[in-house]
Amino acid sequence: MKIRFKAPSGAGSVEVHDASTVKELVEAIKLATNYGDVTVKYGWPPKALTAEQAELSAQSLGLHRENLTVVPVENDSTTSSQNTQPTPEPTTTAGTAAITTTTTIPAAALPGLQTPSSGKEKSTTTTKGIKDQNISVPMPETGSTLVLRVMPDDNSCLFTAVGGALRGLRSDPSETFTPDALRRLVVEHIRAHPEKYSAVILGKSPGAYCAGMLRPDTWGGEIELAIVSEIFRLEIDVIDVKTGTVYRVGEGNGYPLRCVLVYSNVHYDRVAEIFVEGQEEVDFDVTRWAADESSDHIIVHAQEMCRKLKEEHHYYTDTSDFVVMCNECGWIGQGQTALAKHSLSTGHSDISEIKDTAA
């Protein structure tokens, strides 16, 4: 069986026999990570495997369904060596696990739709990603299929996802809405409504906020979704992969159409409807539906897709138990609370999530 893990050196997986004990699993993880000794945590809230569990089978504890967190013991010499590496390099241990590179996230990342207004989301990992999985859900009531259109990890995923849903919305069918164009529209809207978008709302001065939003490495979030929704009179429904919750941006404003995005806590993708199985050409995608009960089946199947993404592909970042590393001082912590405390006490903001991208 394959068991996945996250460690300060990266994420990966180990292959062990179905009857392997906890002790054998821990030894395999130590071999894969090159740590002399480790604490292995599982479940939620995370709890450490104990010596008393050493001879129990890994399957009896459900570890084959877990994404384990590996923490080097503090006095381990290997830990010190790892902590001096500001950016972990990918390594591979033959026959065990591929340790992938990290994905940087902002220190201010919050759960729900409080998406950070700045940060990095680009990953350099070369392992097979969700884009290669062709995630889809059949919709028998319409004879069509709902598919996930995966956006690039280039810090503009929100704008790319929404921009694709705007194609053909206005009278000019050739009009396109690139991330740069949407960023400019957002900034112009903020500047035109200073009474609405104050420093209190934006979290910083409007000038600083707008300057940052024009940069291609700045993330968009709830404010940008609301502005795009208002400009284009389009309800934007965002479904949280982890919880299946639907956030309806622009609901109740009488907008005639809606689009649907999928949110993994650090990344946005677009949902589309296709009528030809295996269709890859996005120009033929249906990306907008009537904003009433006639398109409720789209939301239901999109939630089904999110359950599939969560349970089968683990396609979300859990800010309650993710493992992160500070690229400025080498600090390693787990969870949003620890991250916020470190960021506030040090002022450090170059933070990397040790993201699970194991095949």
Results as ranks from 00 to 15, higher is better:
Phe284Glu: 06
Glu277His: 11
Ala290Val: 00
Gly252Asp: 04
Glu277Ile: 03
Leu261Glu: 07
Cys259Ser: 14
Asn253Arg: 15
Glu280Thr: 14
Arg258Trp: 08
Glu281Trp: 01
Gly278Pro: 05
Pro256Gly: 07
Val276Gly: 01
Glu273Ser: 10
Trp289Tyr: 11
Val271Phe: 04
Asn265Pro: 06
Ala272Pro: 12
Glu251Met: 07
Thr245Arg: 11
Tyr268Lys: 10
Cys259Asn: 08
Pro256Cys: 04
Gly278Ile: 06
Glu273Cys: 09
Tyr263Arg: 13
Ile274Met: 06
Thr287Val: 14
Tyr255Cys: 07
Val260Leu: 13
Trp289Met: 00
Glu277Trp: 03
Leu257Val: 02
Gly250Asn: 04
Arg288Gln: 09
Val271Pro: 07
Glu280Ser: 12
Asp269Ile: 05
Thr245Phe: 05
Asp285Val: 01
Asp285Phe: 14
Gly254Cys: 09
Phe275Arg: 15
Val249Tyr: 01
Asn265Leu: 06
Pro256Ile: 05
Thr245Tyr: 05
Arg270Phe: 05
Val266Gly: 13
Val249Asn: 02
Val262Phe: 05
Arg288Asn: 03
Gly250Gln: 04
Trp289Ile: 00
Glu251Pro: 00
Val276Arg: 13
Glu280Leu: 13
Thr245Ser: 03
Val246Phe: 00
Glu251Ile: 06
Val282Asp: 12
Trp289Ser: 01
Tyr255Val: 07
Ala272Gln: 11
Gly254Thr: 10
Val266Thr: 15
Leu257Pro: 01
Ala272Asp: 13
Glu280Trp: 01
Gly254Phe: 10
Tyr247Trp: 09
Arg248Trp: 00
Glu277Asp: 13
Arg258Gly: 07
Thr245Gly: 00
Tyr263Phe: 15
Asp269Gly: 07
Gly250Val: 04
Ala291Pro: 01
Val262Ser: 14
Gln279Thr: 06
Pro256Thr: 06
Ile274Cys: 09
Val271Ser: 05
Phe275Thr: 15
Glu281Thr: 07
Gly244Glu: 03
Gly250Phe: 05
Gly252Asn: 05
Glu277Pro: 03
Tyr263Asp: 11
Val260Trp: 11
Arg248Ser: 14
Tyr268Pro: 11
Arg270Pro: 02
Leu257Tyr: 11
Tyr263Glu: 04
Ala272Lys: 11
Glu251His: 11
His267Gly: 12
Asp283Gln: 12
Tyr268Gly: 09
Val271Thr: 13
Val249Thr: 08
Val260Met: 12
Phe284Arg: 09
Glu280Cys: 02
Pro256Val: 06
Asn253Thr: 03
Gly250Cys: 04
Asn253Met: 10
Arg270Asp: 08
Pro256Met: 04
